[in-house]
Deep mutational scan, measured.
Amino acid sequence: MATKAVCVLKGDGPVQGIINFEQKESNGPVKVWGSIKGLTEGLHGFHVHEFGDNTAGCTSAGPHFNPLSRKHGGPKDEERHVGDLGNVTADKDGVADVSIEDSVISLSGDHCIIGRTLVVHEKADDLGKGGNEESTKTGNAGSRLACGVIGIAQ
């Protein structure tokens, strides 16, 4: 089992970053940390998408990683996509320092995120509470600013 993974985020604009993942036990939580720069100040949706395909930019990554066919939600919700990591918060300089621990994603097994795409979005994720159909699919997080395929790390 891989215990570490990394993702280099890039987009068409100024947004870029490096996100690290570490899972010490196969059924334990995954620590997610790193930094994203070039964002507007505020909240930005942060999700693992189904495919590791960036051939047409971030759009070819498909929908959120959702092997259990659930509705979109927040990272602490029972009803959520596996890939729903909530929001990252950018400061006035456009930098989001990421520090998350998640017990639904994994670096092995059915919820493995390796080979899938991590995406940072234009807007805040409403965590499935926006009151419309799009909220239950995407959290109304808007366009995909930057993305990268999650790969095994040393």
Results as ranks from 00 to 15, higher is better:
residue 2 A to T: 09
residue 2 A to C: 12
residue 4 K to I: 11
residue 5 A to E: 03
residue 5 A to I: 04
residue 6 V to C: 13
residue 6 V to N: 06
residue 7 C to V: 05
residue 8 V to Q: 13
residue 8 V to K: 10
residue 8 V to P: 03
residue 9 L to A: 13
residue 10 K to C: 15
residue 11 G to T: 10
residue 12 D to Y: 08
residue 12 D to V: 11
residue 12 D to A: 11
residue 13 G to A: 11
residue 15 V to N: 11
residue 15 V to P: 08
residue 16 Q to S: 11
residue 16 Q to C: 08
residue 16 Q to F: 13
residue 16 Q to H: 08
residue 17 G to W: 04
residue 17 G to R: 01
residue 17 G to M: 04
residue 17 G to H: 03
residue 18 I to T: 13
residue 18 I to N: 09
residue 18 I to F: 10
residue 19 I to F: 09
residue 20 N to H: 07
residue 20 N to D: 13
residue 24 K to S: 07
residue 24 K to Q: 06
residue 25 E to V: 12
residue 26 S to E: 15
residue 27 N to A: 09
residue 27 N to R: 05
residue 27 N to T: 05
residue 27 N to I: 15
residue 28 G to H: 13
residue 29 P to N: 15
residue 29 P to L: 15
residue 29 P to V: 13
residue 30 V to H: 04
residue 30 V to M: 10
residue 30 V to A: 08
residue 30 V to Q: 02
residue 31 K to N: 14
residue 32 V to A: 09
residue 32 V to S: 11
residue 34 G to R: 04
residue 34 G to H: 01
residue 36 I to Q: 02
residue 36 I to E: 02
residue 36 I to N: 02
residue 37 K to W: 07
residue 37 K to Q: 10
residue 38 G to A: 11
residue 39 L to G: 06
residue 39 L to Y: 03
residue 39 L to H: 04
residue 40 T to S: 11
residue 41 E to M: 14
residue 41 E to K: 15
residue 42 G to L: 09
residue 46 F to E: 00
residue 46 F to N: 04
residue 46 F to G: 04
residue 48 V to A: 09
residue 48 V to R: 02
residue 48 V to E: 01
residue 50 E to L: 05
residue 51 F to R: 03
residue 51 F to Y: 05
residue 52 G to R: 02
residue 52 G to W: 01
residue 54 N to Y: 07
residue 56 A to W: 06
residue 57 G to V: 00
residue 60 S to A: 04
residue 60 S to G: 04
residue 61 A to K: 01
residue 61 A to C: 07
residue 61 A to E: 01
residue 62 G to A: 00
residue 63 P to V: 05
residue 65 F to D: 01
residue 65 F to L: 14
residue 66 N to D: 13
residue 68 L to A: 05
residue 69 S to E: 03
residue 69 S to L: 09
residue 70 R to M: 08
residue 73 G to A: 08
residue 74 G to L: 04
residue 76 K to L: 14
residue 76 K to S: 14
residue 77 D to Q: 11
residue 77 D to H: 11
residue 78 E to L: 13
residue 81 H to P: 03
residue 82 V to H: 06
residue 82 V to W: 11
residue 85 L to K: 00
residue 86 G to V: 00
residue 86 G to R: 02
residue 87 N to Q: 05
residue 88 V to W: 05
residue 89 T to E: 15
residue 90 A to K: 07
residue 90 A to N: 11
residue 90 A to C: 08
residue 90 A to M: 08
residue 91 D to K: 06
residue 92 K to F: 14
residue 93 D to C: 14
residue 95 V to E: 09
residue 95 V to G: 12
residue 96 A to V: 05
residue 97 D to N: 15
residue 98 V to M: 04
residue 101 E to S: 11
residue 102 D to V: 05
residue 103 S to H: 07
residue 103 S to R: 13
residue 103 S to A: 08
residue 104 V to A: 08
residue 104 V to H: 04
residue 106 S to V: 13
residue 106 S to M: 12
residue 107 L to Y: 03
residue 107 L to Q: 03
residue 108 S to D: 11
residue 109 G to K: 12
residue 110 D to M: 08
residue 111 H to G: 11
residue 111 H to F: 11
residue 112 C to D: 09
residue 112 C to I: 13
residue 113 I to G: 05
residue 114 I to T: 10
residue 115 G to P: 01
residue 116 R to I: 00
residue 116 R to A: 00
residue 118 L to R: 01
residue 119 V to Q: 02
residue 119 V to A: 03
residue 120 V to T: 08
residue 120 V to W: 00
residue 120 V to M: 11
residue 121 H to D: 01
residue 122 E to V: 06
residue 122 E to K: 09
residue 123 K to Y: 08
residue 123 K to W: 15
residue 124 A to S: 11
residue 125 D to G: 00
residue 125 D to R: 02
residue 126 D to H: 14
residue 127 L to N: 07
residue 127 L to Q: 06
residue 128 G to R: 06
residue 129 K to I: 06
residue 130 G to I: 09
residue 131 G to F: 04
residue 132 N to A: 07
residue 135 S to M: 02
residue 136 T to I: 11
residue 137 K to E: 08
residue 137 K to L: 12
residue 138 T to Q: 05
residue 139 G to C: 01
residue 140 N to V: 06
residue 140 N to L: 09
residue 140 N to Y: 08
residue 141 A to Y: 01
residue 142 G to A: 10
residue 142 G to F: 06
residue 143 S to T: 13
residue 144 R to V: 00
residue 144 R to W: 01
residue 146 A to F: 15
residue 147 C to H: 01
residue 148 G to R: 00
residue 149 V to T: 06
residue 150 I to Y: 02
residue 151 G to S: 03
